[in-house]
Amino acid sequence: MDPGNNTAVARFILLGLTGDPIFRIILFILILCIYLVTVTGNLSTIALIRISSQLHHPMYIFLSHLAFADIGYSSSVTPNMLVNFLVETNTISYVGCAIQLGSVVFFGSSECFLLAAMAYDRFVAICNPLLYSTKMSTQVYVQLLAVAYVGGFLNVLSFTISFLHLRFCGPNQVNHFFCDFAPLVELSCSDVSVPAVVPSFTAGSIIAVTVCVIAVSYIYILITILRMRSTEGRQKAFSTCTSHLTAVTLFYGTITFIYVMPKSSYSTDQNKVVSVFYMVIIPMLNPLIYSLRNNEIKGALRRELARRIHS
Rank of each mutant, 00 (worst) to 15 (best):
V142E: 07
R122P: 03
P199T: 02
N175W: 00
S162E: 10
M118G: 07
T224Q: 12
T160R: 13
P129W: 03
G151H: 12
A237P: 11
A196E: 11
P183I: 01
V140G: 01
S137M: 01
R229P: 09
L131T: 11
F159N: 15
V216F: 00
S133C: 07
Y218I: 06
R227P: 07
F181C: 12
G233Y: 12
S217M: 10
S188T: 00
V213E: 09
T224K: 14
G151A: 15
A116Y: 09
F177C: 09
C127M: 08
I223V: 15
V211S: 09
T224E: 15
L144Y: 10
P199G: 03
P129C: 00
L166G: 10
N128H: 14
Y218V: 08
L157A: 14
F177T: 00
A196W: 03
I214M: 08
I221L: 05
Q173R: 06
C189I: 04
A203C: 12
V211T: 15
N155F: 06
D121C: 00
V216D: 06
R227C: 11
L184H: 07
R229S: 10
I207N: 11
S137A: 03
V211A: 15
N155L: 10
S230K: 13
Q143E: 10
S188Q: 00
A215H: 00
F153S: 10
V124K: 02
Q143C: 14
C127Y: 07
Y220H: 09
I161E: 14
E232G: 14
F163G: 10
F178V: 03
A119G: 04
M136R: 00
Y141R: 03
V211Y: 14
L164F: 15
A146Y: 10
A182C: 02
Q143L: 13
C189Q: 06
C189E: 05
V197P: 04
F163V: 13
A117F: 11
P129M: 02
V192G: 10
I223A: 14
S188N: 02
C179Q: 02
V198E: 08
T224R: 15
L130S: 11
F177E: 06
A237T: 05
Y120M: 02
V174K: 03
S190C: 09
E232H: 13
F177A: 13
G152E: 12
A146E: 07
I161V: 15
D191W: 00
A119R: 07
S190M: 04
R122S: 03
T160S: 15
